[in-house]
Design a protein around this nucleic acid. Structure first.
Ligand SMILES: [Mn+2]
Ligand SMILES: [Mn+2]
Ligand SMILES: [Zn+2]
Ligand SMILES: [Zn+2]
Lengths: 134, 134
DNA sequence: GGTGGAATGATAACCATTATCATTACCACC
DNA sequence: GGTGGTAATGATAATGGTTATCATTCCACC
């Protein structure tokens, strides 16, 4: 059950950000969105990109992940999943394991914790990088 | 099997940082270590604190967690565990669930990923904060 | 006691993100 | 279709955590 606080206005700039993310499978950071929109001829100021990403995220129209240092955004029309990041090439893979989710909930309850979210990131070397070793 | 690259020198400053962390159960950030050491009358420059924490961490003498924004350090003589952070009061609880660890490994293998580490943080409201609700 | 590599600490730089603020766009209503 | 009010924009400054720089100090070893 996701609460969606209505965004006040879905402006041209925010629509552009939304379209960009919705028609890709990438995990975008603000800088990349800014650059890509410029390349496509509809530049949006970097501050507006940051605000737009936050607003769209809060509205549930896109979703976000905190990956190591920077925050990244992706399409919201996928079911919940977590991420593994290749420490060598930076590629991002997705996975989901309902048992892990269930066990997290169990661990929280054991401590009297009321879970509101979690962040699970696996680090390692992807298949490509382990195969092509050196 | 933990590889411990030898630190070149365990200086007075680094020993002070190490002692501070080893005799507490807290999760310290650099700023807190810096302030506490000053309060105790053995001030260590903030840059030295950052370098010391990194060096001690790499040497395996303390361990680190990336909690949301800042990096925090704790005693290394505990077995592996993950953390839940109360979004209301900031308190940190520890938990460990060997099944979660095992399932992470399984998920990684499924993708051909060679795991080197992971980061799991649960967010929510702690028992104290849910109980004393307003 | 001299010498070279490490470590220190003050400070500047970095970098992702947020705040400020004047300007512009959009909306509801008259 | 004007007009007033609120949101959004974008240039820019500021913030905050962390790393880089560099002159100085420390220390192990010859
Ligand atoms: Mn994803
Ligand atoms: Mn801990
Ligand atoms: Zn890779
Ligand atoms: Zn709490």
């Amino acid at each position: 059950m996701v609460i969606i606080p209505p965004m006040q206005r879905l402006t041209t700039q925010r629509q552009a950000i939304l379209d960009l993310i919705n028609t890709s499978n990438r995990h975008w950071d603000a800088e990349e969105v800014n650059r890509e929109l410029s390349d496509r001829g509809q530049p949006v100021g970097i501050a507006t990109v940051y605000r737009g990403l936050t607003a769209l995220d809060e509205a549930g129209l896109i979703s976000s992940v905190q990956l190591a240092d920077r925050k990244r955004y992706e399409r919201a029309d996928k079911s919940h999943h977590d991420h593994m990041v290749c420490v060598e090439c930076g590629s991002i893979e997705e996975f989901s394991h309902h048992k892990i989710e269930a066990l997290q909930e169990a661990a929280a309850q054991e401590k009297g914790f009321e879970l509101t979210g979690h962040q699970l990131v696996l680090f390692g070397r992807c298949a490509a990088c382990t195969g092509v070793k050196k």
